[in-house]
Amino acid sequence: MKIAIPAETAPGESRVAAIPETVKKFTALGGEVAVERGAGLSAGVSDEDYAAAGASVGERAAVLAGAELVLTVSGMEPGELGAVAPGALLVGILDPFRRREAINAYGAAGIEALAMEWMPRITRAQSMDVLSSQSNLAGYKAVIDGAAAYGRAFPMMMTAAGTVSPARVFVMGVGVAGLQAIATARRLGAQVSATDVRSATREQIQSLGAKAVFVEGVAGIEGEGQGGYAGETSDEYKKAQAELVSSHLAKQDIVITTALIPGKPAPRLISDAQLSSMRPGSVVVDLAADAGGNVEGCVAGETVERHGVKIVGATNLARSLAADASALYSRNLFNFLSAFWNKEQGRPVLADEDEIVKAVRLTRGGQVVSERLA
Rank of each mutant, 00 (worst) to 15 (best):
A242V: 06
A230G: 15
A212M: 00
S207H: 03
R99K: 15
N316R: 12
F336T: 03
A147Q: 12
P11A: 10
L321E: 07
L317H: 04
V218M: 01
E59G: 15
E353I: 01
Q191H: 12
R60V: 13
E222R: 10
G110R: 11
I256P: 13
V368P: 00
T233W: 00
V312Y: 14
K264M: 08
G175H: 09
L94H: 01
E302P: 09
P280S: 07
A113C: 00
V192A: 12
E216T: 10
G313C: 10
V70C: 05
S277T: 15
A125N: 07
N294K: 10
S46Y: 11
K24M: 07
I19M: 02
A85K: 14
A10C: 00
E21Y: 12
A177I: 09
R361M: 06
T233P: 02
Q241M: 08
M1N: 06
T163M: 15
V70E: 06
M158C: 10
G44A: 01
G66S: 02
L275Y: 13
A161M: 14
L137P: 08
V176E: 01
E355N: 11
M158H: 08
P267I: 10
M1T: 08
A259I: 11
G12F: 02
G146A: 06
G12I: 11
S165T: 14
L64V: 03
H307I: 02
A194V: 08
N335F: 08
V73K: 05
G44E: 00
S247R: 14
V63W: 08
V33G: 06
S234W: 01
L71I: 07
F154M: 15
M116L: 10
D352A: 13
Q134H: 02
E80V: 13
A28K: 14
G38R: 15
G30A: 03
E36N: 13
A161P: 14
L89E: 09
